[in-house]
């Protein structure tokens, strides 16, 4: 009788299941749903309603968080497609990508040791635009070619870049304190 709280996040927001997402439609569906389910809408009601509102709102937040960012959206699509992105275990990466990884890592390490804020910020920008190029590839693999194994490899590369991005953020933060 009740809608399955675990249903597909795309269906929850009434969106087609694909990598390219209409961001405005996603945000407006998110807001519309919260207007109904958010605990603030049920604060004056009995505990049973409050509890359900919290479960629903939690799920809506989780769904939005997952679909909003390209990487988590890609990983979620892979999961729905039954493909294990194998982020920790899969070591079958192209030598080209491994080389690239090493170069990035060295550059970040050097800038961090030299406490070079400007260089760190430059790397941040370069990583961001490199990441954006991968979004295009993901869109091609998911929505046009329907090639999940290529998509999984691209997602792994993106994952690595975001991790590095995070390390740069931490380094910048540490330098500010």
């Amino acid at each position: 009788m009740t809608i399955d709280l675990q249903q597909d996040f795309f269906a929850l927001f009434g969106l087609p299941r694909r990598f390219e997402v209409d961001e405005l439609a996603l945000e407006s569906a998110y807001h519309d749903l919260h207007a109904r389910v958010h605990p603030d809408r049920h604060a004056h009601l009995p505990d049973a309603d409050k509890r359900r509102a919290m479960q629903w709102a939690t799920q809506v937040n989780e769904a939005f968080r997952t679909l909003r960012k390209p990487l988590s959206r890609a990983l979620y699509l892979l999961e729905l497609g039954g493909v294990d992105a194998g982020l920790e275990t899969n070591t079958a990466m192209s030598p080209e990508f491994l080389m690239e990884q090493m170069e990035w890592r060295e550059a970040v390490e050097e800038a961090r040791e030299a406490a070079d804020v400007e260089e760190l910020e430059k790397l941040h920008q370069r990583l961001r635009s490199a990441g954006k190029d991968l979004y295009g590839k993901l869109q091609q693999s998911f929505d046009a070619d329907r090639d999940l194994s290529t998509a999984a490899e691209t997602a792994r590369r993106l994952m690595f870049m975001e991790k590095l991005q995070h390390e740069i953020d931490n380094a910048l933060e540490a330098l500010e304190d």
């Binding site: 009740t2 749903l33 629903w56």
Partner: peptide, 9 residues
């Protein structure tokens, strides 16, 4: 709650 969510969509 269900009905409300469907209505939102």
């Amino acid at each position: 709650m269900d009905k409300s969510v469907r209505a939102a969509l």
